[in-house]
């Protein structure tokens, strides 16, 4: 037995060596921090004084007293839902359009995909300048074409979330479009040909052939979109910082601030224990929603 194991190791030594860097990185940057977080959920710790075991107090505080956290959960759902209803149909529409025989489609594909590879922080900063109400180009264009009389306050309490969704959708459409394009290219051409012979219109082919056959791709795209939207906070951090008055505060931004609470030159004490508890609950919320979605979508998409 032992010699068989030895032989196996000897035989696969190069494989083990090749995956070793990944394993080490996984342990250092994923497993260790995860264990660290799971331990600190039961502690009060500010990074300076010795940590103090407080049992489940962090969870009691989170579930019974912290209205701001639950507001951020609500905001996350609004943000994710808004992003989904804009991104998924639009990226599907663009994929269908760019899968047809139009001129310069490769250039269009590249342009639409480009936001995916631009830094989120840079992109959000550019949008911050574009949308600001006093001299942003968005308001200037709307005023120039007489669509509005006075500048719209894009970062006000009423519209800040809409602005955040627009920016997020702009950054995500290209990515999902590529997934849809890949899916569209797997639909056999013969199906369209026979449909055409039967006299089917373009809309009928889209409704009865393309969309049903895109089921598995749509399932994956929706799952990715849900997870990414629930986890997203980078663009909001740059765009609004979670404000005004918490109107765009989302779950992961809330968790981030528990670990890094200082603003500008003002130092606030970090709450590593409480932040860890919030992070675990947030991960559970994200996980549960994803599982529910997968269950529902599995039964739905399996029809096709």
């Amino acid at each position: 037995m032992r010699s068989r194991i030895k032989r196996s190791i000897k035989h696969n030594i190069s494989t083990y060596l090749m995956i070793m860097p990944c394993i080490i990185l996984l342990i250092v940057f994923v497993i260790y921090p995860l264990c660290w977080v799971l331990r600190y959920v039961f502690y009060s710790y500010d990074g300076l004084h010795p940590e103090k075991f407080i049992g489940i107090d962090n969870f009691i505080r989170l579930f019974s007293r912290d209205r701001d956290y639950w507001k951020s959960v609500y905001n996350t759902f609004v943000y994710a839902f808004g992003k989904l209803i804009v991104t998924v149909p639009l990226s599907f529409f663009l994929a269908v359009l760019l899968n047809s025989k139009i001129k310069f489609k490769d250039i269009f594909r590249a342009i639409i995909f480009m936001p995916t590879i631009i830094s989120t922080a840079v992109m959000s900063l550019v949008f911050y300048f574009m949308f600001n109400s006093y001299n942003g180009i968005v308001n200037q264009v709307l005023i120039k074409y007489s669509l509005i009389d006075t500048p719209i306050n894009w970062f006000g309490r009423d519209l800040a979330m809409v602005t955040a969704v627009i920016v997020a959708a702009w950054g995500a459409i290209g990515n999902y479009m590529i997934y849809f394009l890949a899916g569209l290219q797997t639909v056999p051409e013969e199906m369209y040909e026979s449909a055409k012979i039967d006299g089917a219109s373009y809309m009928q082919m889209l409704t009865f052939i393309t969309i049903p056959l895109m089921g598995p791709v749509l399932q994956v795209v929706l799952m990715l979109a849900i997870i990414v939207s629930l986890k997203g906070f980078q663009s909001i951090m740059v765009l609004t910082g979670g404000g005004p008055a918490g109107a765009t505060d989302v779950m992961y931004l809330y968790v981030y601030r528990s670990f890094f609470p200082s603003q500008g030159e003002m130092s606030f004490a970090p709450q590593y224990g409480y932040g860890s508890a919030a992070a675990v609950v947030t991960a559970l919320i994200t996980g549960i929603i994803t599982i529910i979605y997968l269950r529902i979508s599995k039964s739905h998409f399996n029809k096709y």
Binding site: L48, A245, G246, P261, S267, A269
Partner: peptide, 18 residues
């Protein structure tokens, strides 16, 4: 509060803004 005070909820400056 500038020397490491820990408290629950929003800090004073976020509250002023709200």
């Amino acid at each position: 509060d500038t020397a490491g005070l820990q408290f629950e909820g929003k800090n004073a400056y976020d509250t002023y803004a709200a």
